[in-house]
């Protein structure tokens, strides 16, 4: 590991950017795999555009970090050890090409990403604020699109509602860990993480606001500060699998240009 990489990983503000970038990278990684296999052609195209947004957003944030710490964005994206990634568990829970899982995952995440980007857009660092502001405008498209689908499927046929409910039940157990704080030496509730409880409340309000218009239900608690997971580099096996697959070509010939 280079000094530059260590500098980045020891910078608490950089970790806030990195957790969003890593979430976006792995969410985009999971969703882009669907391209060509979606349930309706038009839907396939639309979701692929949004997967590209997520990957692009990751790139925009890695570029910011790369400029700041003198690192190649692809090196940040691909070449860290698994425990140096800060993405949440939710991003890499396998969906087995079940559209309900994919949809609910993205919906849970976008309601988290939007307010976090709002807060990053207020940072004093102008370059970061400007990038977050642009990303936020596009995140808004995801919120609108995914809310629309949740309302449609959550109040259509019994079959569709049951499938979405099942996905909510599976994924909501991971949703609380979206709010985990990276960097163990931050111990106050509202410091670097832009106010964890406040963020959680905003997320719960917005997601429940959509569910109230459907027959769907969701229960999520904010986990205690002592619980560690992805944002602390403690990952589930499915993360390791996704990470290995993502780097399979690149790691087979280290140092090569692609």
């Amino acid at each position: 590991m280079t000094n530059a990489m260590n500098n980045m990983l020891n910078d608490l503000e950089a970790l806030l950017v990195l957790k969003m970038a890593d979430d976006k990278l792995f969410l985009g990684h999971m969703q882009s795999d669907w391209t060509g296999l979606g349930p309706i052609l038009e839907e396939d195209i639309a979701s692929s555009s949004m997967a590209q947004d997520d990957l692009s957003h990751a790139l925009v944030l890695y570029e910011y970090l790369g400029n700041r710490f003198d690192l190649d964005p692809d090196v940040i994206a691909y070449e860290r050890k698994p425990n140096q990634y800060l993405c949440c568990d939710l991003a890499t829970v396998p969906d087995d090409f079940n559209w309900a899982t994919s949809l609910v995952r993205r919906w849970l995440f976008t309601h988290y990403a939007a307010p976090v980007l709002d807060r990053l857009a207020l940072f004093e660092d102008k370059e970061l604020a400007e990038r977050a502001h642009r990303l936020r405008a596009e995140e808004g498209l995801h919120v609108e699109y995914l809310d629309d689908w949740m309302r449609r499927l959550g109040s259509s046929s019994d079959e569709a509602r049951d499938r979405i409910q099942e996905a909510i039940d599976l994924l909501s157990t991971h949703a609380g860990m979206l709010f985990e704080i990276p960097g163990r030496d931050i111990d106050t509730d509202d410091s670097f993480c832009c106010g964890r409880s406040e963020l959680f409340e905003e997320w719960a309000r917005n997601t429940n606001g959509v569910l109230e218009q459907t027959e769907l239900k969701m229960q999520v608690q904010l986990p205690g500060m002592e619980i560690v997971g992805g944002r602390s580099g403690v990952h589930a096996d499915h993360f390791a699998a996704a990470h290995a697959e993502m780097g399979a070509v690149r790691s087979a010939d280290p140092g090569a240009a692609w």
Partner: peptide, 10 residues
């Protein structure tokens, strides 16, 4: 086949 339920719902 996997996407049939989405089309049915629509």
């Amino acid at each position: 086949e996997q996407g049939a339920w989405v089309r049915r719902a629509i």
